[in-house]
Simulated scan of single mutants.
Amino acid sequence: MADTAVAQRSVPHDLHVQPPAPPADRGDLHIEARVYSQIARQAALEVPGVVAHSVTLGSLTGRNLPKALADSDSRHPSIAVEIAIGWPSSAAEVSASVQHHVADVLTRLTGRRPARVDVDVAAVSPSELLLTEEVAEIVAVQQDSPEPVIARHDRTPRSYPAAGLLAALIGLLAVLAAVVIGREYAVAQGHYNSEPWLADAAGWVSGTPWQTWMAVVAIGAIVVGLWLLYNAVRPRARTHRAITAAPGVWTRDTDIARRLSAIALDDDTTVSAGTTVSRGRAKVTVQGQPGSDGAELQERLDDAVSWLESPPKVVLAHRAPPRPPVIAEGAPA
């Protein structure tokens, strides 16, 4: 006959389990309004259809979306959430989902149900999934068609030529010169009774002895002439970057910066993010939560620009305060 061993937890006979203290003796819990705001913002980002949207100087003006504000009522706060939805999501459906999800998350994490959740749809932005599907559809159509739908061309989008502005300035000066010459002709023919300008100016210049300032004017004229010649022949600056997967499709550095900022804001450990793209470098400045390092975020940012023909080098400037030390129970403070 087989023996059966049963393991039981040994309990000392002299051990007395203390019942939990009454709620009145446990102390008070106070939650700051900014905690409710941060939780509501993160909860809004979890709702399908809500996208991270940043605007110029958003970190200074507070227009980075989603944005949440809570009042000072610590028991049942009122929450106001501003969101950006991805096209073509339904504003009514996404707003209702944000209301329910924010209320449920706040109740679950803080134990306090908000009095109300107001949702304001402040922007509509193309979602990352939609853009990816559109590019994939273009590539699929081009690969299946016997003739290329989009042909690659050598005309890279470039900035407006500096010579164009100079041509407008020179044209304005030519019009003024024509007015002055017309006036001089009218004075010489007796149609306009006035003193001639050009004759008096030429006489003054011809009768003026050599002075030092004339050499400065001559050198300045040479410099201006060389500068005008350089602007006439210099190549225009490139303003867009080609997308490898879709020939003939280009994107701006501003859009790349917004995409990198949105990816950084999607990270759970990110508090705020901003991106600056210049030439071959994209600097992403991230303020993280205490103890975060941003190692995984760097890989996601590098993958986000890998589909560009000339991707910029992503430099992540991650700043986060150190994680507060954990004090063991019973240890002296």
Rank of each mutant, 00 (worst) to 15 (best):
M1V: 09
A5G: 00
A7Y: 12
Q8P: 00
P12Y: 03
D14P: 01
L15M: 12
P19G: 08
P20S: 11
P22T: 10
P22G: 10
L29Q: 14
E32F: 10
A40G: 04
A44N: 02
G49Y: 01
V51C: 05
A52P: 05
H53P: 00
T56I: 09
S59E: 14
R63G: 06
N64C: 04
A68P: 00
A70I: 01
A70R: 01
S74W: 06
S74T: 14
H76Q: 06
P77Q: 02
S78R: 15
I79E: 03
I79D: 02
V81I: 10
A84V: 04
A84K: 04
I85V: 14
G86R: 01
W87C: 00
W87H: 10
S89T: 01
S90N: 08
S90A: 06
V94Q: 05
A96K: 13
V102G: 01
G111D: 09
G111T: 06
P114A: 06
A115C: 01
V121I: 12
A123Q: 08
S125D: 09
P126C: 00
P126N: 04
P126I: 05
L131T: 08
E133A: 14
V135R: 15
V135T: 10
A136H: 10
E137K: 13
V141I: 11
D144Q: 13
S145H: 07
P148Q: 11
P148Y: 03
V149E: 05
V149I: 10
R155M: 11
R158P: 04
Y160F: 15
P161K: 10
G164C: 07
A168V: 12
L169D: 15
L169V: 13
L172V: 07
A174F: 08
A178I: 08
V179F: 10
V179R: 07
Y185V: 14
V187T: 10
V187S: 09
V187I: 15
A188L: 12
A199R: 09
D200K: 10
D200A: 12
A201G: 01
Q211E: 09
A215G: 03
V217T: 11
V217I: 13
V217E: 04
V217Y: 06
V223P: 03
Y230T: 07
V233C: 00
P235W: 04
A237T: 14
R238D: 13
R238K: 13
R238P: 01
H240A: 14
A242C: 02
T244N: 09
P247D: 02
V249Q: 13
V249K: 08
T254H: 11
R258I: 00
A262S: 08
D266I: 00
D267G: 03
V271N: 05
V271W: 00
S272P: 00
T276M: 05
V277A: 05
R279T: 11
V284R: 02
Q287N: 13
Q287A: 11
G294P: 05
E299Y: 11
D302E: 15
S306W: 07
P312N: 09
K313N: 13
V315T: 12
L316W: 07
H318W: 15
R319L: 10
P322Q: 13
P325D: 14
I327Q: 15
A328W: 08
A328Q: 15
E329M: 10
G330T: 05
P332T: 14
P332H: 09
